[in-house]
Design a protein around this nucleic acid. Structure first.
Lengths: 399, 399
DNA sequence: TGACTTTGTGCCGACGCTAAACAAAATAAG
DNA sequence: CTTATTTTGTTTAGCGTCGGCACAAAGTCA
């Protein structure tokens, strides 16, 4: 009777990622008949998730009957997304399509007790929901630490002065329950929590510079240390216990600084913002995160020989690490975030040359290396993770 | 009308890997009704792929009606599998379940022209088919080199004196056509060709020490260099262009030997059979492969302090490399082959300790490290790759 | 204005499954 | 030895979902 139940999830994902602007391409992307695609679109519209324009869209010189445009419902449900970083936190409501509907930055200093900041994050999010009156289908949180699966504990929140092993997922879920966030009573997506770089990679793959990539590698550095993430065939690969892509301990400078892991010259200590400031002969100042200070220095004083030399040194180290990763993972695209993105912008040719030189075959070494293309990609990624149950099976969530 | 078409492939894979010994477990594994599972089994039996025992199997003290055992058809179709290695080649006919039906080792010295040995391999396989009169549904070849996708060219056949970039898949397919191997006229699986360690990993996952693993990492060394492979959720991860898991150039000894890749102390030159013989103060002899000589030395003279010291040195280097891979890939099982398997057998505790010590968290470092569990796993893996189209959709092949 | 091209919808039938009743083959209990 | 129980396997009926097809709609091109 009702047609197009099996394809409901894939269809929503296509509209969500902007790959199905019309019912016609939805038909071909799903590999179903026009009748089925039409029924799917109608069902998604009835669920309030997508919108079908009444008037046909721009013909653009093409022949045939113009198609009605499909887009994400602008007033549809949202998810609560949040991110904790070195300088505080940010909470937001995010709709389908990665659209930020409302946001509340919080510049609170991160306390040593993770439950305090998580409570504050959730309270900010609940406030946004009250203000906007939006329906909420899930919640996601990005933390700057590896998150062990399936427990959801933060294993190395090095620069947050948190205790190792903090049960962030439990704290987040409990805070959501305590705050009485409407719509999250029985939702599947309550309290999705993950590593910030992992979630950023997911967001970049869906809405940013990673669109269309089959095997996407992301590497980024924010405050201290280096994080990595891998998206395979649209799915985040976080390993069997959530600890994959801990790329910070690749050796990139055998005679380098000692690292807390017991080795020397790890990417973590040789290619993060602190390493850059040190290499440029600057003392980290008290104001702003190390990333902000590094970015400022790189952008405004790139003419200074010591700054330029420091940048080239970090590019060379980063390139060595990337080459190792490319040899192991053979991605078809690499995206850089944080300071690494700035370094790429500063001298893209140098970085690409180092990677190509150290890769085993020109083939894999010529992989495109791009800057990340989204603002707040960790936050959007947290939203993506929260949306996932809806994308998998809209009917199961919205029955 | 006909029941159980969609589940035909998954059902065959369950019987193939021994995870569905009866129709009852087939029912629960597939998540379908008994009726559907029964129809699926009947269909597979009608296709000549599986066998349903006439007499019920061992009751084993259980209540209820005893179930009939499902097994792979012993006289069913086969695939042609072949492997080329440093000492020559081996061809075999392999049935479902990884059963070797007939085999023909060839100890020919590998010539510098790859087409000669590939022709010889195919001729040997065709001879086996003529002798046995079996129906052949596909063919697979394992080569000791990275194989670029989608071209199917061997990029680094270092110890075969082949030219880099030899089009092994084309050569294999053409040789199959020339030899007139019956049943391969229009088969989808004609000329599946891949890296030997990759295929070995696939075989270990299906029939060997990797059964049940979700994220399986395999590392092995045969003659020269070190190879790696990763099986994710039952599927081989070979990267976007077939070049993933080139693990040989992880740095494991910063002050070590120069490597052709331009770096020093790579796993490739620090943890292969030649490195072991050298560390033990032995000259490689003219007879037998370096793996055979190393294995002999390790097994018969482990009491000799220089041999033992060499083994421990290689274990430490291998452990360092494995720790790096574990940090990046976070597998839930690691399998070692070739000389690495011998080193593991020689001192399992030492290797596990090194890996655990260098892993970032005890959690990921305590990953089980096991010796490979199959003889001729690359050969069986080549057969698995050849079987894949049948496992994906039996009707499409046997229509 | 009419032919053509492409998009969207309604109807029917077929395919592949579930559900449920029934049958079969063993063990356990009386 | 008979009967109840448990688990497995089969048959039948029915239904949901999708493909095929015809038709309608809305534009371009000649």
């Amino acid at each position: 009777m009702e047609r197009g139940r099996g394809a409901l999830g894939p269809a929503l994902e296509l509209v969500h990622t902007g790959r199905a602007p019309t019912r016609a391409v939805l038909t071909s992307e799903l590999g179903v008949t026009r009748a089925t695609a039409g029924a799917v679109a109608a069902e998604l519209e009835a669920l309030g998730l997508i919108q079908v324009d009444a008037r046909p869209g721009a013909p653009a010189g093409s022949q045939g009957r113009p198609s009605h445009r499909l887009s994400v419902a602008p007033d549809g449900p949202v998810v609560l997304a949040a991110q904790i970083h070195a300088d505080g936190f940010r909470a937001a409501l995010v709709g389908l399509g990665g659209r930020m509907v409302a946001t509340a930055p919080g510049c609170m200093t991160v306390p040593s007790d993770p439950s305090h900041i998580i409570d504050a994050v959730v309270e900010a999010g609940a406030g946004l929901l009250r203000e906007t009156g939006r329906r909420c289908l899930g919640a996601g949180l990005a933390v700057p630490s590896a998150v062990a699966e399936p427990e959801g504990t933060a294993l190395n929140p090095l620069h947050l002065s948190w205790p190792a092993g903090a049960p962030v997922r439990t704290l987040f879920t409990e805070a959501l329950a305590k705050a009485g966030v409407p719509g999250l009573g029985s939702a599947t997506a309550v309290g999705v929590t993950g590593n910030d770089v992992n979630l950023a990679a997911l967001a970049e793959h869906r809405h940013g510079a990673g669109r269309g990539a089959q095997h996407l590698l992301c590497v980024a550095t924010g405050h201290r240390g280096v994080g990595g993430a891998l998206v395979l065939d649209g799915k985040l690969h976080s390993g069997s216990s959530g600890l994959a892509l801990e790329v910070g301990h690749l050796t990139v400078n055998p005679a380098g600084l000692p690292c807390h892991c017991g080795s020397r010259g790890c990417l973590d200590v040789e290619a993060d913002p602190l390493a850059f400031l040190t290499a440029a002969g600057r003392e980290p100042g008290p104001e702003g995160s190390l990333l902000q200070q590094s970015r400022e220095l790189l952008r405004s004083e790139y003419g200074d020989p010591s700054v330029r030399a420091a940048a080239e040194l970090l590019i060379d180290r980063l390139g060595l690490g990337l080459a190792g990763l490319v040899n192991i993972l053979n991605p078809d695209r690499v995206i850089l975030g944080g300071l690494h993105r700035e370094l790429l912008d500063a001298d893209p040719e140098r970085l690409r040359a180092v990677v190509a030189d150290r890769s085993l075959w020109g083939r894999s070494g010529s992989v495109p290396i791009l800057p990340c293309g989204l603002d707040h990609n960790s936050l959007i990624g947290a939203a993506e993770a929260a949306w996932q149950p809806v994308l998998d099976d809209p009917l199961a969530v919205l029955g």
